[in-house]
Amino acid sequence: MITAAGLTKRFGAKTAVDDLHFTVHPGRVTGFLGPNGAGKSTTMRMIVGLDRPTGGSVTVNGRRFAEHRAPLHEVGALLDAKAVHTGRTAENHLLAMAATHGIGRRRVREVIELTGLESVARKRVGGFSLGMGQRLGIAAALLGDPATLLLDEPVNGLDPEGVLWVRRLVRHLAGEGRTVFLSSHLMSEMAMTADHLIVVGKGRIITDAPVTEVIANGTSPRVQVRSPQASRLADLLAGPSVTVVRSEAGLLEVTGVEASGIGDLAAAHALAIHELTPKSASLEEAYMALTADAVEYRTEAVR
């Protein structure tokens, strides 16, 4: 359980994290979603005390991270894959991390096997690919068998097999009753992994809700209607909460009315309908709609 109350971080004049209030509950995967520069990483760094909040507080299971007697058993964190000395072997890195908490060699071997690093464990980390570095970071996070996992963009640089592996792993960990807090800027990844979403933009929370709800609320469903009497149907549909877009002759894009409503209306007025297709909102659309105003680095359209 992670609890943030009024969590704020300013770097000089720039506010990276602005008065966040949220709770991450155990037993489910909570996605932390937002565009680059939204304050996700800074928030995660504050949870483990690497960055000091300018205001507010964040606790893990009721205490600030540094106040726990065995921090690695409380929280396992993958903050970025490059938190390892490049001159050291993966195994020695894990042994050194484990030694701080008296965690034995057996557990180090376990996490090496769990993350599939056996063949490179005795190689120096400097030669690792991004994906291997990511696996090593996950191995280090799992060392203390922690009740809470913080994973910042864990699928970055992983191949499809690795992505699938991470997805299964975090689902499994949450299924064991652990708290899993996972950041990403990819909505599609989140939709497949997370149960709950906290969406941030420009340091503020935009939404804090179950994934299904975010998708449902983020966009209004459209219905594609083909009819020889399209103009007449458009006039009948017109209303304050309904938008009708005529893309080509006889084809309407209707938002604000469900397909059944359109069908009933057409039947009541004896209008012919050739096609009636509900278009479910895509996840990316839901996400773009949510964060449209909160994108820090917007790209200009290519001309």
């Binding site: 299971n61 007697r69 065995a70 921090p71 690695l72 058993h73 409380e74 701080t100 908490h101 008296g102 965690i103 034995g104 203390g144 068998d145 922690p146 009740a147 064991e176 009753g177 652990r178």
Partner: peptide, 11 residues
């Protein structure tokens, strides 16, 4: 709280 299997370990 902690899920650790070995309660003898700690910082």
């Amino acid at each position: 709280g902690s899920m650790r299997t070995d309660p003898t370990t700690g910082l």
